[in-house]
Each structure stands twice: as structure tokens, then as C-alpha cells.
Design a protein around this nucleic acid. Structure first.
Lengths: 161, 161
DNA sequence: TCAATGTATATGATTTTTCATATAAATTGG
DNA sequence: CCAATTTATATGAAAAATCATATACATTGA
């Protein structure tokens, strides 16, 4: 078969790689009863506790209204907590709980091991190149992570219906 | 802010790049009234007419049952046709129609222009490296595209309810 | 100060996607 | 040749995701 357009089309190549390896890891997660969405939210909050909901949505690459719903589920499971901001009472910052941290910490180790197995397909220089090129491509996106200015007044914890 | 795990995690980097640039292009498509799913199916059938349904599903990275439904919609729009295979009457090969080709051809040009704009963010050597690395990573996936052995007996065209 | 405008999150209806399984045909081993 | 198994696609119910919009608060400028 002659080479197809698709196989040399960057957006397809990126989608294929992302899909293949993410699904591979998601299978491992599902085997432990963790949904991909839960993992994405928790790992981001672990990295950056107190993120505002809209920032979190940008980071996890999900729609805002979806993140609202996912976060509310995680609140119900006591894995995260919502706090309204003092400065701007429309904003909600999300914190991972200790239970959430306990859940996600071993998964990070698993993610690192899985990542290593993916990178093992490449020469050391290609490994470096790939990550650095992807960082270049991401440069504009990852700018403005908005995090709650440390405000730990317990009275701001938000009650959920 | 210290560097986060996420920002150096290959699966996230891939997802971010894929998401960012795909969404960028999908906006262009939507402006022309074409859904991402329709584009994906049509471009693959354009590249490789007569693909069997299950192969097509693997290529477009969608679930089999979803592809069944999407293809049925495209059949209703006369953009593709289904044919049952002689050799194996369970199998369905999908062909793009002339109308489908007319729809997709200009979009390919648009995709090429968009791809060029993405690659422009990189040095020429990084452009080459990125594509070649992604090809290495894809190597195992894109093996067995199954295509109908040229069988153009009109009697095999499948009626749809 | 206050109306107008803008922004952050929530909500409900709708659409999309998945999951489990049915159906139909092919293959395999006795 | 036939039962058992496997494979390809279809289908309907269930779950997830999106869309449009509501609500509540903040900001701007007259």
C-alpha cells in the first residue's frame, strides 16, 4: 500500500501516539478501579493544590462544566475539597485531601514506570528531543495557572448540596 | 512555581499537543459545518477506500459500535457506501462516494496549511525529528489495514434500514 | 453610587459515546 | 458434516460529555 496522507499528517500522528499510550495506561488504572477522569483531576491537584476550577479545566483538557461535575463527585468521595476564594467569591479553589493524596501517590509511581516503558522504544537522544520539542509546542498554553493565594481560613470551606 | 510532574510527563505532553492542535483545526472544520468525526472517517476512506469497518475503527481511533453508527449517518448523507464482502459475508467494506470526495478534498488542503502553521513553530530539524520519532512510536499500531479485495460487483451493495 | 458589562461556576436538557450483548457468518476440531 | 468456538457488525440501554444558559459576584465608567 502506498503511503497515506494520514500516516504523515502531524495531527494524526500526535492523536495516535497520545491515544495509544494513554489507553495503555488507562487500562492499568481501570484495573485498580480508577477512572481516567479521576486520575487526571487528582494528579493535577496533587501537582498544584488550590487550583481554581477554570484553570483546572484548562489543564485537564476538559470542559468547565464537566470539571464542575467531576469535582463534585470527588468531593462526595472526600478526595478533594472546594473552597470559595476571599478575594473573589465567584471563584472556587480545589484542594486534594489526604485521602486523595494517598490514592494518587502510588499511581504516580505507576505512571513513571509506564512512561519509562514508552520511552524505551526510543534512543536516548530521541527521548530528549521528543520531550523538548513537545515543550516548545506547549509553550503558549501552559502560562497562567491560577491558584488560590494561600488562604486557609476554615470558614471558607464550601458546603455542597 | 516549581516544575510540575505533569509538565514533564510524556502522556500529558502528547495529550496537550494533540488536543491543542486538533481543536484548532476542528474549529476551522466546524466553521464549514463539518464535524470532527465526519472529517476523520472521510479522510481515512479517501486515503484507503474499501476499508473494512473494524480496520476503519482502529484507524480513526473510535470504538467499533460508534463507527457503525457514524458510517450509517454518512451513508444516509450519501458520502459513503457500504458493501458486504464476498469472501466473508460478515464483513462490510466502506467506500467514499464522489460526493464524499468532493467534500473532503478541499479540507485536505486546509489540513495541510494548518499543519504547516503548526510545524512553523519548530526549527526544520525539529520538524523532521518530531515526525520521525512519532513514526517510530506508531510502528506497531499501523500494521494490518484490511481493505476489500477489489470486488465491484454491484449486487453486493448493502441496503440500509 | 449605580447601571452596564464582564467573569466564574452551576445546572438541566440534549447529544455523544460506551458497554453489554445480540445476530449472523466463518472457522476449527472431532 | 456438525457442534463448539471465534469473529464482524449491529443494536439498545446506560453513562459521559457538551451546549446553552442561569446565577452570583466583580469591575468599569458615567
Amino acid at each position: 500500500m502506498p503511503e497515506k496522507f494520514i500516516d504523515n499528517y502531524l495531527l494524526f500522528q500526535l492523536a495516535l501516539a497520545s491515544h495509544t499510550f494513554s489507553e495503555e495506561f488507562y487500562q492499568q488504572l481501570r484495573a485498580k478501579g480508577v477512572s481516567p477522569a479521576k486520575w487526571r483531576i487528582l494528579i493535577n491537584l496533587f501537582d498544584c493544590p488550590g487550583m481554581y476550577l477554570t484553570s483546572l479545566a484548562k489543564y485537564v483538557l476538559y470542559e468547565q462544566s464537566r470539571v464542575t461535575k467531576l469535582v463534585d463527585q470527588l468531593v462526595a468521595e472526600k478526595l478533594v475539597e472546594k473552597q470559595t476564594s476571599h478575594q473573589d467569591r465567584r471563584r472556587v479553589s480545589i484542594h486534594i485531601t489526604e485521602a486523595g493524596t494517598k490514592l494518587v501517590a502510588p499511581l504516580i509511581e505507576q505512571a513513571k514506570a509506564h512512561e519509562a516503558s514508552v520511552l524505551a522504544k526510543l534512543s536516548p537522544s530521541d527521548q530528549k528531543n521528543l520531550k523538548s520539542i513537545l515543550k516548545t509546542l506547549a509553550s503558549r498554553h501552559i502560562k497562567d495557572t491560577q491558584v488560590a493565594e494561600l488562604e486557609f481560613d476554615e470558614s471558607t470551606k464550601k458546603k455542597q448540596g
